[in-house]
Amino acid sequence: MRKLYVFSKFQTILLLRSFKSTIIGFLLPVVMFFIFSNMLSSLEVPETGKTIVEYLIPAFIPIIIINAVVVIYGQYFILYKEQQNLLKYKLLGLNSFTVSFGMFLATLVFQTIATLLLIIFAVATKGVSVPYDNLISVILMIILINLYQFSIVVLLTAIVDKSTTYQSIALIIFYIQIFLGGLTFPPEMFPQVVKNIVYAFNPIIYGLEAMRGIWTDGHSILDYGKEFLILLLVSIFLISMGLVLAKKREKTQYQ
């Protein structure tokens, strides 16, 4: 446990020192909120009777998670694999799980700071309400969305060897999730054909629906059993696939 704490603290410091990627990660959701909350402030979300501003925070928190896990954590982890750092740390008494989880914990610190910054900005500029009475459900959904993004990284890093390749694929996945997952424009605004494709192939939309209901409408996470189960099962499937592929690759390398 001590080793995990020390390593995750070290990774957090490294992450916060990466000025360019860190500052973009901190400011992107704030800038997006500023633009969308002013540009679309009078636009009502179809079938809800509420303005789009009320749904921005539960949509932008998943964007922070996707950026932190798929883009930042995944990039750092694939770099460690590419540079054989996992083997080096193993010689120092840190197994692969400790290294991986320590890096993941560092991104959780990043997520927390970026999320708090976004919420403070939204409350100060637009008077957005924070569901204090529903925080447990909010936190549980945030954990589940993290697990789903982590599962994507597990699968990608089992398939991809080069950090440059991973970076390109990760950015594509990032943009597909935020633009075709309802995280920028509400899914109610999608044409029916696009909506059908999104619900079939982009599971983040289920996380968005749950987050919106929990954050904006005051529902419990228990009201979103289907969405919770879909994200959980997809996450387990992707992680299982990633572990199987990683083991096969290891066997091939040692033959």
Rank of each mutant, 00 (worst) to 15 (best):
R2W: 14
K3H: 11
L4R: 06
V6A: 13
F7L: 06
K9Q: 14
Q11A: 06
I13N: 06
L14P: 02
L15V: 13
L16G: 13
R17W: 05
S18P: 01
F19Q: 06
K20R: 01
G25Q: 00
F26K: 05
L28Q: 05
V31E: 07
F33D: 05
F34D: 03
I35N: 10
F36C: 13
N38S: 12
M39D: 04
L43T: 08
E44W: 04
E44C: 07
P46D: 14
E47A: 13
E47H: 14
T48K: 14
I52T: 09
E54P: 09
E54G: 02
I57G: 03
A59S: 10
I61S: 00
I64S: 00
V69A: 13
V69S: 01
V70H: 12
V71W: 07
Q75E: 15
Y76E: 06
Y80K: 03
E82S: 12
E82C: 04
Q84W: 02
N85S: 12
L86S: 09
L86A: 12
L87W: 11
K88H: 11
Y89P: 07
Y89I: 02
K90C: 13
K90N: 15
L92I: 09
S96F: 06
S100H: 11
F104E: 03
F104I: 08
L105C: 15
A106E: 01
A106K: 03
Q111R: 01
T112R: 12
I113V: 15
L117H: 03
I120H: 09
A122F: 02
V123I: 11
V123H: 01
A124G: 09
K126S: 01
K126L: 09
G127D: 01
G127F: 00
S129F: 11
P131E: 04
Y132L: 15
Y132T: 15
D133I: 10
N134M: 07
L135D: 06
S137C: 05
V138I: 14
I139S: 02
M141I: 09
M141W: 11
I142L: 15
I143D: 00
N146E: 03
N146M: 07
N146H: 04
L147Y: 06
S151M: 08
V154M: 04
V154Q: 04
V154F: 08
L155P: 02
L156S: 15
L156Y: 15
A158N: 04
A158D: 15
A158M: 14
I159G: 08
T165H: 13
Y166W: 12
I172M: 13
I172T: 08
I172A: 15
I173Q: 01
F179C: 01
F179Y: 06
P186H: 10
P187Y: 08
E188M: 15
M189H: 01
P191Y: 10
P191W: 05
K195G: 05
I197C: 14
V198Y: 00
P203T: 04
L208P: 01
M211Y: 05
R212A: 13
R212W: 03
T216W: 04
T216A: 12
G218R: 13
I221H: 08
L222D: 10
L222A: 06
Y224S: 06
Y224M: 12
F228C: 08
L229V: 10
V234L: 10
I236V: 08
F237H: 11
L238F: 14
L238Q: 10
L238S: 13
I239N: 05
I239W: 14
L243F: 14
L245M: 15
L245V: 11
A246F: 09
K247A: 04
K247D: 14
K248E: 05
K248C: 11
R249F: 06
K251C: 05
